[in-house]
Design a protein around this nucleic acid. Structure first.
Length: 505
RNA sequence: GCCCCCAUCGUCUAGAGGCCAAGGACACCUCCCUUUCAAGGAGGAGAUCAGGGGUUCGAAUCCCCUUGGGGGUACCA
């Protein structure tokens, strides 16, 4: 009944959304997709996109992962209006810097009777759980401390035990979570656990922190992974206990491994955004693919190259709640498609340069330099074979340095005599020497004529030349290849091939 | 075990009661183009809409059950 119309913000409140990763590792591809959906939604509604770091787990915290996460978001073009490096009115944006806030609110819950102190130690909790499992009871806290009186609590304190604070869940009734993508989901309160809100180290658990921060940061729409759905009723209770209004909630579906077994992990390939960058994926290709995991526009358009187009077409309410499998084949297809058909050549060249430099194929080669122009020509010829930017060096190597080692036998086509090949290469060398390689049509005409004269099929002549000049049996078109390799190098390589065949005799 | 979510070609999906003897994309196969490899073009194969009950004149679309898959079940997020 409070279902909001599609495509509209859905509340009178200004749109404010957040992405709230916890710094325990690299940004997972599932997180990237959630961030992408969230960011698009913010941009569509002129709202704020907030980045909040949920660093409340002292044990799993990894400092490096903050830089790694922000770097992955920037790479994907997802900029934030408030958060680390951006500031904002609702900071700090690191939960570890907001401890007093959580502690104060937890105390308020204690006073209002919505929460209680629990002195149970890990050993007891473990024992209780083991006991429950052994007797086939649902595991969960047995509410041992829920009924402690002042004296008993004082006694525990005197022992030096620092309590945690737990939420006092009603023993009966039902809590309904209004998920925007699934509709109402109901949970029986008696099956819910008296969850810990504040740990004994003074840090909040996720549940407490997320509710307080979303409220204080005036978040209007929550987007987060599916795995949070089971704890949503807890959050609803917290909103009620605090007397706050809950944002609209969207649980985005999990991304499963290619074989459908479990959540996407690096078992079957890359699972972190940065791993995709390292292989040479284009952020827009990855974005395009990720968009289509759980969302679709219609029955014929799948390629959405620009953010502008996505802003016009994406609809958060149209996200499909069912989990989907990650297909490495399809992301790779998108990447290849973007490289070959979407990205402009100059842009593509710019993006390939770091790879070529790292491989030692080009030096600085700033834009405008002859070396840069040469690289551009080379890339133009191989881009239809390039699926990943990381393949650029291997695909273009022969345009820059010497040819790879090759087997002299690959110079000899089926049904051709070595002596004829030597002769053919010598004649080809002479033609290249005399005519040069800049005029593709001219060189083609002469080489075809040569083939006719020697009684060879075109391929029988072209293949040895190709192998001699590139070191490979697969290459771009022969004449454009010669042109970009250049006259001098072509002649040298033909001579080298002739010499090798001579030695073999 | 218990709770929750999900269910259309191998995969991602279109589909919001008649327009669907189910459309598109990836992957796969064939042919065309062709100096090789790609890219591209044209075709093909591939889903009794997980199964079973309902509701309805009519169901892939609504309801129930079963099955399957996934998620959760921490002083982790």
């Amino acid at each position: 009944m409070t279902q909001t119309p599609r495509g509209s913000a859905g509340t009178e409140r200004p749109v404010r959304v957040r992405f709230a990763p916890s710094p325990t590792g690299d940004l997972h591809i599932g997180g990237v997709r959630t961030a992408l959906f969230t960011w698009l939604f913010a941009r569509q509604h002129g709202g704020a996109f907030v980045l909040r770091i949920e660093d409340t787990d002292q044990k799993r915290y990894q400092e490096e992962s903050i830089a790694s996460i922000t770097s992955a978001l920037r790479w994907m073009g997802l900029d934030w209006d408030e958060g680390p490096d951006a500031g904002g009115k609702h900071g700090p944006y690191f939960q570890s810097q907001r401890l007093p806030l959580y502690q104060e609110e937890a105390r308020a819950l204690l006073h209002s009777g919505h929460a209680y102190e629990c002195f149970c130690q890990p050993e007891r909790l473990d024992a209780v759980r083991a006991q429950q499992i052994a007797s086939r009871q649902p595991p969960g806290y047995d509410r041992h401390c829920r009924t402690l009186n002042d004296e008993q609590r004082a006694a525990k304190r005197a022992e030096g035990i620092v309590p945690v604070i737990r939420l006092k869940i009603p023993l009966d009734g039902v809590t309904i979570v209004q998920d925007e993508l699934r509709g109402p989901v109901s949970y029986e309160n008696r099956l819910l656990e008296d969850a810990v809100l504040l740990k004994s180290d003074g840090f909040p658990t996720y549940h407490l922190a997320v509710v307080i921060d979303d409220h204080l940061m005036e978040i209007s729409h929550i987007t987060r992974g599916d795995e949070w759905l089971p704890s949503a009723p807890l959050h609803i209770m917290l909103y009620e206990a605090f007397g706050w209004e809950s944002p609209l909630i969207f649980h985005t579906p999990v991304i499963l491994n290619q074989d459908g077994r479990g959540k996407l992990s690096k078992r079957q390939g890359a699972a972190s955004a940065l791993a995709f960058r390292e292989q040479g994926y284009l952020p827009e290709a990855l974005r395009n693919y990720l968009m289509l995991l759980g969302w679709s526009y219609d029955d014929h358009q799948e390629v959405f190259p620009t953010v502008d187009e996505l802003l016009g077409k994406f609809d958060l309410w149209r996200v499909n709640p069912s989990p989907s499998r990650f297909s490495y084949d399809k992301v790779l297809w998108f990447n290849q498609h973007y490289i070959n058909h979407i990205i402009e050549l100059d842009d593509l060249t710019r993006r390939c340069m770091p790879w070529l430099r790292r491989a030692g194929l080009v030096g600085d080669a700033p834009e405008g330099s002859a070396a840069h122009a040469h690289a551009r020509e080379a890339i133009a010829l191989i881009k239809d074979k390039m699926k990943l930017l990381g393949e650029a060096p291997d695909l273009t190597r022969f345009f820059f340095t010497d040819v790879d080692e090759y087997d002299a036998a690959s110079l000899i086509q089926k049904n051709t005599e070595p002596a004829n090949v030597v002769l053919a290469l010598q004649r080809a060398r002479d033609i290249v020497s005399a005519t040069g390689v800049d005029d593709e049509a001219a060189i083609e005409e002469q080489l075809r004529a040569l083939a006719g004269e020697l009684g060879l099929k075109a391929g029988q002549l072209f293949m040895p030349i190709r192998v001699a000049v590139t070191g490979r049996t697969a290459s771009p078109g022969l004449f454009e290849t010669l042109r970009v390799v250049g006259q001098q190098r072509t002649v040298e390589r033909l001579d080298a091939a002739i010499a090798r065949l001579g030695q073999n005799d």
